[in-house]
């Protein structure tokens, strides 16, 4: 009872405090609030404007092809028939590939950096990883095109085919460029992002929690498993979402190594493919007004929607994780 009363009165105090803050409006505050509100509105306006431009300019193809734009394989300006199924598949495929490899790698690396790495080495490594994140994507693309693709063509893909050829993933003719190359380049590009963000959030795990577990006789792995990861998971997920956003939208590097061929969606990683972003980058220069241009803009719209959906799913995931964490914390005492 008494505890309840204390918390109630605390809440009331807080409320009164809020009220006072809202009522007493100094001109400076008003001005400042107005300015910040303006900035938020500008951002909102930009998003709304982008959506509006994308939708209004892709109306011709939306009207003409409707849903078949999503399921048609051919992107054919000669016969004015457009579909982006290979590009949608390629976008999702390469991003999924990159996440599957970059998340465990990145988590492992950041755990090492936070828990096992000697301090001076950690500073150097952290610096190098941040440097990796700052390399322009076209450099990754050049590396992919000049180094990775020839190696995959001559050594990597034939080896995979020879030893793991029974998997559908490694069938077909090794071309060097294709989903595999694009996936590897994307993995490399998002890895530093995941490492940086997870390292930062792992570093702020309260020392007390770590020490408590250590005092109970936990191993280092158990400390990480039961103290660090639960504490940091929301932040880590945030980093993964940032990384996914980069992978979905990456244009230059992927265009240089994905092979740019509208093939039937296939599980084979050797297949040259397309992504939505590379369709736009490749075709925009020569697109003529009419259905062709509209098709490219609709590809942009679809990319926008895919990004939107993944972001919403991710927010929802984070929110539910946070609720879970709060629920378990509240239930414990």
């Amino acid at each position: 009872m008494s505890q309840e009363r204390v918390s109630l009165s605390k809440a009331r105090q807080q409320w009164v405090g809020w009220q006072r803050m809202l009522r007493v409006q100094r001109p400076g505050d008003l001005f400042f609030r107005g300015i910040t509100l303006l900035f938020v509105l500008i951002v909102l306006g930009l998003v709304a404007g982008t959506a509006w431009i994308l939708i209004s300019n892709s109306l011709p193809t939306i009207r003409r092809f409707g849903f078949s734009f999503l399921t048609n394989k051919a992107f054919d300006p000669v016969h004015d028939v457009y579909g982006v199924l290979p590009a949608i598949f390629g976008t999702l495929m390469t991003s999924a590939f990159a996440l599957i490899f970059a998340v465990p790698l990145g988590l492992g690396a950041s755990i090492f950096l936070v828990d096992f790495c000697p301090r001076p080495l950690r500073l150097i490594l952290a610096f190098l990883i941040d440097l990796l994140a700052a390399i322009p994507s076209v450099i990754y693309g050049l590396w992919g095109f000049l180094v990775l693709a020839p190696w995959l063509h001559n050594a990597g893909e034939p080896w995979l085919q020879q030893h793991l050829g029974f998997l559908p993933l490694f069938t077909g003719q090794p071309e060097g460029v294709g989903y595999l190359g694009a996936g590897i380049v994307l993995t490399m590009m998002i890895l530093p992002l995941i490492i940086s963000v997870s390292r930062e959030v792992m570093l702020v795990t309260p020392i007390a929690q770590r020490e408590a577990l250590l005092a109970l006789g936990a191993t280092r792995w158990e400390v990480i498993r039961h103290a660090v990861l639960p504490f940091a998971r929301v932040g880590i997920l945030g980093g993964v979402i940032l990384a996914l956003g980069r992978a979905l939208g990456e244009t230059m590097a992927v265009t240089m190594i994905i092979g740019n061929q509208a093939n039937e969606p296939s599980l084979s990683l050797f297949t040259p493919g397309y992504t939505l972003a590379s369709v736009i980058a490749n075709q925009f220069g020569e697109a003529t007004p009419g259905l062709f241009l509209s098709a490219i803009i609709e590809a942009g719209l679809i990319l926008f929607i895919i990004t939107l959906i993944t972001n919403i799913l991710a927010r929802w995931l984070i929110a539910s994780l946070q609720r879970q964490a709060q629920g378990s914390r509240g239930g414990r005492p």
């Binding site: 054919d76 000669v78 016969h79 061929q261 509208a262 075709q283």
Partner: peptide
């Protein structure tokens, strides 16, 4: 297939620009 600045290629890999095509050919025996 037909003719145009962009066509729906039945096969192959696409590379960007003259340098991209020349580089890809040079890379691939």
């Amino acid at each position: 297939v037909g003719a145009g600045t962009t066509v729906n290629w039945p096969t192959g890999v696409g590379a960007k620009g003259n340098s991209g095509v020349a580089g890809q050919v040079k890379n691939t025996d």
